[in-house]
Amino acid sequence: MTVAVIQFGGSNCDRDSVRALSHLGIDAERVWYEDGLPDDATGVMLPGGFSYGDYLRAGAMAGRTPILASIREAAAEGLPVLGVCNGAQIGCEAGLTPGAFTVNRSARFQCERIHVRVENADTPWTAAYDEGAVLELPIAHGEGRFEADDDTYDRLVEEDRILLRYCDADGDVTDAANPNGSRDNVAGVLGSQETVAVMMPHPERATLPDLGGTDGTGLLRGFERTTTTV
C-alpha cells in the first residue's frame, strides 16, 4: 500500500507526513499535484502548509485543481483520504467534507499544543482510541475556525460525523479550551463516508517520540484500517 501525500506549491508538511507515516511502517510518497493521483495509491493525505499562498481563502485554489476532482471520485469509491490543517481547508473547499475552516476568532496565527477529545471512536481514524479519549496535538493555523450552517451542523451531529472537539486536559469541552472559535469546538469532521476525514490539528507532528508526543499515531494508522484499492 502506498499513501499519496499530495504536494502543492506552498505545502510544507508533505515531508513530515511521509516521514511520520513511514515511521509507522505505512508506505507513503509525495506526489506533485500536477502529476495526478497514482493508480496504485491506497490512500491520500492532504498535508498542511499554505497552498497557493492562501490566496482568496485557505485551500480555495488547491481545492479546485484537477487532482482534487480525481480524489473526490476515488473517495466516493472508498479510497481513504485524510486532510490535515491546510489539507483540511482544501478538503472542505473541494467538497470532500462539509463546512469551512475560516479566520481564527483571535484573527491571529496560532501555533500551540492543544487537547482534543475523540467524539466518535468507531471510525478507521479513531479506532485506536476510546470514545472520550483526550489527545494532545499541535495546531499551527490562522484559519482554523470551523463554521457550518445550522442544517449542516445538525446533520453532522446526528450522523455522528464530528470526529474531534477541542477540550481541556481533563476532556471537558469548554470555550476556554477552544483555540480558534470553532463552532462547538469542532476540530475535525468526517465526510459522507467514514474513510474521509479532515482535522486542523497535526497528527504527523505528534508521531515521532523525539518531537514531544505520539498521541497522533492512532489517527495516521487509519490508513492501515481502510483496505481499498481504486
Binding site: A60, E93, A100, T102, A148
Partner: peptide, 9 residues
C-alpha cells in the same frame, strides 16, 4: 459560485 465565494460562509 464556483470559486470567488464559499457558500458556507
Amino acid at each position: 459560485e464556483r470559486l470567488l465565494a464559499n457558500p458556507t460562509i
